[in-house]
Amino acid sequence: MQEKEHERRQQEFDAKVANEERIEPKDWMPHDYRKTVLRQMSQHAHSEVIGMQPEGNWITRAPTLRRKAILLAKIQDEAGHGLYLYSAAETLGTSREDMIAALHLGKAKYASIFNYPALTWADMGAIGWLVDGAAIVNQVSLQRTSYGPYSRAMIRICKEESFHQRQGYQIMLVLARGSAEQKALAQDALDRWWWPSLMMFGPHDAESAHTAKSMQWKLKRESNDRLRQKFVDQTVPQAECIGLKMPDPDLSWNEDRGHYDFGEIDWDEFWQVVSGNGPCNRQRLAHHIKAQQDGAWVREAMHAYQEKQQARSARSAA
């Protein structure tokens, strides 16, 4: 009897997914689906938040007041994206405290790209243009993910991302058209960020542990390699427009495929960074833990205030 019921629910779920309907929080869903979407949303939320660190590094050193205001506004958006995603994850009954604890214990991951340092002002350009650019390609595809709250968060986020990428590209454009020294700065940032940006799409489809199942559930709508190709195809001409050169000798237009061919990613480096040995992994996590600890007194004060308010209204009601 129970088995029959389970089977019926599974069929209902499968039919919804097949019909491009979204799964909503109170719907029945397979245990593994819930686990996978939760992992993906928490990882995405943590990425938005940890991603503020490399850019935050340059707020006080932005070259002009205007650039500083723009950078602040951009980073503020990323904090907002983290909040959209944490609350989407909370629709499945997890708590923010648990997600953050998992991050601090190294059980939950965030995008590896943020384990690279932002060394010069040109990195603010490269990050906006390439890192946000790659994120957009991924997020546009996720607007159609099968979990409703995640899909809606993606739609909201995508509306805000275009500003991020354009401000980054414009930083690069200004530098590329500047003095020889400024142009070199832009080229150096591109050289350092190009390959890590390509790594953002994850391992090749054949080696991606979660891809097949996620595609079947329509949590993921396009494969890692397809998304990466899309990003390369749209980004290479953008580099040409401002006279910068991609750091890839194997990069060339393939007339037959109608796509750019490009060189192989250094997968050793990729796995090193994923497993915690990138240039800034420890620093990023230590900073997050410290910020969390330093903010403890604010949360305590808020609780104390809430209790006081409640006691007061209970007294006046009595």
């Binding site: 205007r66 205001a69 723009i70 506004a73 958006d77 275009s162 500003f163 990428q165 354009r166 401000q167 590209y169 414009q170 454009l173 749209q234 980004t235 001409p237 953008q238 427009c241």
Partner: peptide, 19 residues
């Protein structure tokens, strides 16, 4: 007074696509 929060605030050459 924060027009820079909008994508349209950033003037880019016409030949730049997909941004």
């Amino acid at each position: 007074d924060k027009p820079y929060r909008h994508a349209t605030h950033y003037q880019l050459p016409d030949e730049v696509k997909n941004l």
